[in-house]
Design a protein around this nucleic acid. Structure first.
Lengths: 163, 163
DNA sequence: CTCATCTGGTTGATGTGTCAACCCAGTCGA
DNA sequence: TCGACTGGGTTGACACATCAACCAGATGAG
């Protein structure tokens, strides 16, 4: 109907395979995290970052940098997580609060991380094998870098940042 | 703090590079689609599928199969798109309605598809080059197939489908 | 000092995705 | 013929993401 395709055949095929793969993998990981541990991918991401820090406490904007979320998303999500007892906001420098992982939050991530890692191994690491996996990592870095360069050069500043 | 990491160093590095790449690329493509053409990724996906069909008309469940969305998401989104005039629901077999792309919808996708394809070329096709691109496509297919097999074998049926 | 600007963060409105429940027309078995 | 089941589809409630507007200190120029 619309006369496409706008990519040629090889490009189309690789691109769509890639998109389908990402969607499938993401959906699968997310569903299991949700079903087995009642945790969303977003919760997981925040808790991973907090639990990897020395002290289990970070400023919200550090979490923003780490996750690449925009600040309002961080703020909203941290509020929800606080309500669920996974984190706590502590006023320390009498200004911006620090985000602290709670006992409950730490327990939650320790409970689900091994199963999650196992799935990543099963469907990503093991299927690709070491060489292809490393190659994909490098290719990914190149893409990120290219987009970064492009934005430095071309984009109006609001497009660049994450909010 | 939490004693991670749960993946070893190489695995961790490749996996995180991959995740960052996908998020960066997706965000970038989506933002430009939104800013330049006022179209969301979801709208785009539906319109691409409709515009590629012979007649510009499909049943909702076909769109579901094509996009891998669950049926309620399809239903909700089609309602919104109808309200915006991009598609129309037509009763034909006196039962399930057919989804038809409107003039406006067709114009919209024709307007934005070339720019979108150009971006995919710029940040995916060109950065990878032909060989790596094809390799990634094949690797993607393997991952999808592996997840598919795993689910056939292991998962309770509700985990499998998309609704 | 004062005013403008920046940064980190919050808020509310709105659009979107997900889940569970439901509807309805076939279909199939008894 | 009747009742259970199935498949395509809708709905409502809720969780989540995004955007724009806003607030409060800090910084810096006049």
């Amino acid at each position: 109907m619309g006369k496409g395709p706008w990519l040629d055949e090889d490009e189309q095929k690789a691109w769509r395979s890639y998109l389908l793969m990402h969607r499938t993998l993401e959906t699968h990981l997310e569903r299991h995290l949700q079903r087995e541990f009642g945790m969303s991918k977003s919760d997981f991401e925040i808790l991973v970052n907090l639990s990897e820090s020395e002290s289990g406490r970070m400023r919200a904007f550090e979490l923003g940098r780490a996750t690449q979320w925009e600040k309002s998303r961080i703020s909203h999500h941290l509020s929800r997580m606080e309500k669920r007892g996974l984190i706590r906001k502590e006023a320390c420098d009498s200004r911006y609060p620090e985000i602290v992982i709670t006992e409950e939050g730490l327990a939650a991530i320790k409970a689900c991380a091994p199963a999650h890692a196992a799935r990543v191994r099963q469907f990503f690491v093991d299927v690709l094998g070491t060489d292809r996996m490393i190659a994909l990592g490098e290719a990914s870095d190149e893409i990120v870098e290219t987009i970064g360069k492009h934005c430095d050069a071309d984009c109006p500043p609001e497009v660049r940042g994450q909010g």
